[in-house]
């Protein structure tokens, strides 16, 4: 038996109970996910994509913003380079999300970690890091939330592709487009540790806005996240005696 003199951080787990907690945590954002999924199904049919191809895209890519962006590029011949660049640029933020989950993957076998990452998305990630602050150590939280969103997203795509009739204006009328922002904002409140976060968060916000104004679309999360993280790190290094 190893001596327990060195206290090690507890390893992460991946359990069904964790999946269940994660699924419950994202219930509030399922309505907008559903509505945007329906809207995607309709829009996909609108540019001539067959319903089953749209459904397949939702299953395999599971990336709302990128899927909408690709609709603009759905032409013959296929504009491969813009298509791949757009998909990467819109999804590049996942790299930062994944990196920040390092502690929650500690000690788990690679297949579980890389399996769970297939369902990584902004919403279940935000729910998980908020829960981590409250002591959550189960990567299943990500999987459960992601799986529920995946099922919602795919079935909504199918419904939109088959039925149709809804427009993005309807979504705006009921303010559903703001549910995701409100969800992220309330998560932020739970994540705040105190004054120590002021500077990094200010830098992140300004950098993200700057990126919206001065950079091509979709880089703001990456730029803001990195800038804020670095700001906090550099400030702490300078304060160190």
């Amino acid at each position: 038996m190893a001596p327990a003199s060195q206290p090690r951080p507890p390893g992460a787990t991946l359990t069904a109970a964790g999946c269940w907690r994660g699924a419950r945590a994202i219930l509030a954002v399922l309505p907008p996910v559903f509505v945007f999924g329906v809207a995607f199904g309709i829009a996909a049919r609108g540019v001539g994509i067959e319903g089953w191809v749209a459904a397949l895209m939702s299953m395999a890519a599971f990336a709302g913003a990128a899927q909408f962006a690709v609709l603009d590029l759905w032409t013959s011949p296929v504009p491969w380079l813009p298509l791949l660049v757009a998909t990467f640029a819109i999804n590049a933020r996942h790299i930062l999300l994944g990196a920040s989950l390092r502690g929650l993957c500690r000690g788990l076998p690679a297949w579980k970690v890389y399996g769970a990452m297939a369902l990584l998305s902004d919403l279940n990630w935000a729910a998980l890091i908020a829960a981590e602050r409250r002591g959550e150590r189960d990567l299943g939280y990500l999987v459960g939330g992601g799986a529920l969103m995946w099922v919602t997203w795919v079935s909504a795509t199918v419904i939109g592709a088959v039925a149709g009739g809804l427009t993005l204006d309807d979504v705006k009328t009921y303010a559903l487009d703001l549910v995701l922002v409100a969800f992220f904002a309330t998560t932020l409140v739970g994540l705040r540790r105190g004054r120590v976060d002021d500077l990094p968060w200010l830098v992140a916000g300004l950098a993200a806005l700057g990126a919206v104004w001065f950079l091509p679309p979709n880089w703001h999360v990456m730029v803001g996240g990195l800038a804020g993280g670095l700001a906090g790190l550099i400030r702490d290094e300078l304060k160190r005696p």
Binding site: S100, V181, F184
Partner: peptide, 20 residues
């Protein structure tokens, strides 16, 4: 330390432009 700041900063970078 960096990864802890990163999580909050990413969330801020999601919220602020979307709010504006």
């Amino acid at each position: 330390n960096f990864l802890r700041y990163l999580a909050g900063a990413v969330l801020v970078a999601l919220v602020v432009p979307a709010t504006v």
